[in-house]
């Protein structure tokens, strides 16, 4: 555990300045967008804010390969591989820092987008106080519901990228091809298995929640009715459900754990300097 902490600290020390600079720049960009509410056409600040979050998500994907790859760029892998640490300490520290860095950015960007959306809703001056409360409740529910899948996706992406890069270092030639195979094959395999398992999993593993409850649509409905909009059908969402199949989630998570363990083993036993 101590080795993991030391390796994580090293990742933090390396990236701390760019991490803070990015935090500040993103905050300034979002603050600027917030200041444009009422000046720009309605929806544009929220749209751009969403695009920034999307861009950071894409950036996380491309950046995720560098978390391991940077060690090889300047021969630092000689130091990394000569340390008396287990493969999973190295793998885990890099994954944890990736989650810290991009998890923080994406959570904050999600919150910024929600604040800008609510700012736009309030600025439109067509909402009653009760309707505004309804929109606000729904927005934060959506944000809250998105957190777990976002972190789950980020962790999966990080594990696959670290694994793919590690695989690429076990061969002397065609390493780019090995990297692509190391990413695509597990992605396809565990997606396929998750789908197959979902088809046969028992009903008690299908967890469903009415969308009305999940997104506080009742509150929104009351708000709309208070604004004089009666017979609200909530766009047909009253009977919709938010569903998740725990069997497929477990299969995917088990696959990622297996990839994590296998990648750590490769790093400790097969990767050469």
């Amino acid at each position: 555990m101590m080795n993991f902490v030391k390796l994580y600290n090293k990742e933090f020390m390396k990236e701390r300045k760019s991490f803070v600079v990015t935090l500040v720049l993103l905050f300034l960009a979002e603050a600027f967008l917030y200041s444009r509410i009422g000046h720009w056409p309605t929806g544009i600040p929220t749209f751009i804010s969403g695009m920034i979050a999307f861009g950071v998500g894409i950036g996380a994907f491309f950046n995720s390969f560098d978390y391991m790859g940077d060690e090889w760029k300047r021969s630092n892998h000689y130091l990394m591989l000569s340390l008396p640490v287990r493969g999973w300490d190295i793998f885990g520290a890099k994954l944890a820092w990736l989650m810290t860095e991009f998890g923080t950015h994406l959570l904050l960007l999600g919150a910024y987008s929600a604040v800008i959306l609510l700012g736009e809703a309030r600025a439109a001056e067509v909402l009653t106080a009760q309707l505004y409360q309804g929109v606000m409740a729904m927005t934060w529910r959506v944000y809250g519901i998105m957190i777990i899948p976002m972190l789950y996706t980020l962790a999966s992406m990080g594990i696959l990228a670290l694994f793919a890069y590690t695989v690429s270092r076990t061969v002397k030639q065609l390493s780019f091809l090995a990297k692509a195979v190391g990413y695509i094959v597990p992605l396809w395999l565990f997606s396929y298995l998750a789908q197959k398992v979902m088809a046969v999993s028992p009903s008690w593993m299908h967890i469903e929640m009415p969308l009305v409850d999940a997104l506080a649509l009742d509150q929104l409905k009351r708000g709309l009715e208070s604004s004089g909009i009666v017979n609200v059908d909530l766009w047909g969402l009253e009977n919709a459900v938010l569903g998740i199949d725990m069997a497929s989630v477990v299969i995917w998570a088990a696959g990622m754990v297996a990839i994590f363990i296998f990648g750590s083993w490769l790093l400790e036993n097969r990767v050469e300097a």
Binding site: S75, N76, Y78, S82
Partner: peptide, 14 residues
């Protein structure tokens, strides 16, 4: 590796 001190022929320090 805990028993071994290795100085490689490349610049490996961060």
């Amino acid at each position: 590796k805990a028993h071994t001190a290795y100085l490689p022929d490349v610049d490996h320090i961060y």
